[in-house]
Amino acid sequence: MVVTRMGDGSFITMTRDEVLRDVEEGVADAVKRGKIEPLSSDEIEHIVDICCRPQKFVSVEKGNELVLTYDSGTLKVTRLGIPIGMPQILQLYERVFGADSLELAYVHYSFKPIKSIVPEEQYAVAETSLVTTAPLLYGAMPNLPLYTKPDGPCENAAELLPMGKIEEAKRAQEEAAEYAIKDMVFVSSGVYEAGADGIDFDTTAAAGDAEFYATLKATEILREKYPDMAIEIGMAGEFVLGFHGSIEYDGVRLAGLYPHKQVGLAEKAGASVFGAVVNTNSSRTFPWNLGRAVTFCKACREAANIPVHANVGMGVGAVPLVMTPPIDCVSRASTAMAEVGKMDGL
């Protein structure tokens, strides 16, 4: 019997045939939803093999290593209650965690609150850039809902939509997008001029298509302003939610796009790296989620002309939706994304 987990993290046992069936069903679900090519039988067998290995921890074969970028980098230590500064946390990432790149991130991980503390963040970036060697990104979330009342100046689309005020909800989101673009450009410019290698727009489109639009526009402006800036657009989910419904970028309606379509727009806007996300279904098994996630991410990688880094963390990239992601699943997802998805990074 194979010991594996459900998407909620609980242990289950399956036969090898059941694992194969679930991987195939996960692949089929991605194919149906994304209208993409399925994995080959050899690739499916490779995922089954990764799932069925008895070891707690699995890894890639030598030579199949990839590049790691991070989201909310320094926060991962801050939220553990370890009271050390951001430059020191990133020294630990570099010298202890074997990080290929670094990400500096403030506790209020959104552009709107960071706008008011840019000088302090610039200091942290400048200080970190003196004592670290790996590429340094600054990360934050576009987080469009922060621009709605009572926290911000715009009407709340989530309140307008249930009242049937569709046009008003659209206008409110467009207004919020303009505020968000200004803040993203302002903060990103500040940290880049302080010495960061670039910016990571994390959990892009968490608030739907208007937020994706805002991030693409901010990327476009920054690419024009700083041709050499590294810009990573990491998504929030596999599917761009249509809270607005009709907003477009470069003539393409953003609502409903899956990763292999999202990446083309990120490229056009000027992104350097695209972070593809596939959500974990906590009611399905890890093999089902892994087959599905790798199918989506492989299609995205094949459609891309820039590096694609799959998001493989809590509740995404087949990793169970838990606060302490189990090593057995994370290492298997990491291995499958590298060897079957052939990702450029994670």
Binding site: L68, G98, D228, I306, V330, S334
Partner: peptide, 29 residues
Amino acid sequence: MALTHMHASGMGGIRTTGDLVARMQLSKK
């Protein structure tokens, strides 16, 4: 989780040449 990925599939950062490969992805796409 960062450590799990580093051991499972990461290049190893400045322990090896992961930082250099990352730099070429980020700066030159």
